[in-house]
């Protein structure tokens, strides 16, 4: 569906992403992984057409540079890493803007599905109660859910998410990731996301691209990419041992506490 070919992004003489290619097919959840500064968010911004790049990104063979912004928004829904709001918009107003691509243009005011889509998006992200709340009063996690709801209301075919679990507590982390996986089950959909938590990436991803300093270290099926050797090369540490150590903190007490 979505295909990147030889993408290179430079800020001045500094190369952020170098000759990166990827394929995203229907039903796949492609995880972008790599340490800080690997170029993950920059790649997300190039897909969103927010930064100049060389190479091409194709939607079903067509260069997305030739698509109108509203056409692109109906195909690809992007969640940015940093989201904040300067004015006291309500949650509902921000989520409602996700329908923009369906009613832009001078004479195409009607958007019959709009209200239902916004309603659904508010509900699945647990925001129905907060719909009239001011964005300025929200916590980081609530804010993150608002922008996720906006992307869902946009009803795209591909989700491009930069750190969807940002600021979310455990309950919502699990909720949102299951939600995305459910969403992905419909035919004609795919997900590309940056996920810092490698456990989450392994648990939910089908494919992965491992980046380091803008270069692709490995790509393919998630299990083939997230090998101890690859991770060691990129993160400079034994990720597997670290994860096991973390997990060992959670062993069930050998004697169940009867008193509590």
């Amino acid at each position: 569906m979505l295909q990147g070919e030889h993408i290179t992004v430079r800020y001045g003489s500094f190369t952020v992403v170098e000759d990166l290619s990827f394929h995203l097919e229907e039903g796949q959840w492609l995880m972008l992984a790599g340490p800080n500064g690997a170029g993950k968010s920059t790649l997300i911004e190039t897909i969103a057409q927010g930064t100049p790049y060389t190479g091409s990104i194709r939607w079903k063979g067509e260069d997305i540079r030739s698509l109108k912004p509203s056409e692109l928004a109906r195909k690809i829904g992007v969640l940015a890493q940093k989201n904040n709001v300067g004015y006291a918009y309500t949650v509902e107003e921000v989520v409602g803007l996700g329908r923009y691509a369906y009613k832009s243009g001078l004479f195409s005011g009607r958007d019959d599905d709009g209200k239902a889509e916004v309603e659904k998006a508010l509900e699945i992200t647990g925001l129905s109660e907060l719909r009239h709340a001011s964005m300025l009063t929200l916590s980081g996690g609530e804010m993150q859910r608002v922008f996720l709801a906006q992307v869902f209301a946009q009803n795209p075919q591909v989700l491009v998410l930069d750190e969807p679990a940002n600021h979310l507590d455990l309950k919502y982390q699990q909720h949102i990731f299951s939600l995305i996986r459910e969403w992905l089950k419909e035919p004609g959909r795919a997900v590309l996301s940056v996920v810092h938590d490698l456990s989450l990436a392994r648990r939910y991803g089908t494919h992965a691209v491992l980046l380091d300093h803008g270069k692709t270290v490995s790509q393919g099926l998630i299990a083939d990419v997230m090998t101890p050797e690859n991770l060691k090369q990129v993160y400079g540490m034994d990720v597997y041992a670290w994860m096991r150590e973390m997990l060992s903190q959670w062993q069930e007490p050998s004697q169940p506490d009867a008193g509590i």
């Binding site: 969103a48 057409q49 803007l97 946009q154």
Partner: peptide, 16 residues
Amino acid sequence: NAFAISEDNARHIGVN
């Protein structure tokens, strides 16, 4: 409204 939220957000929802 989209710009007032943020220019990036405006681009993401399909504003030219």
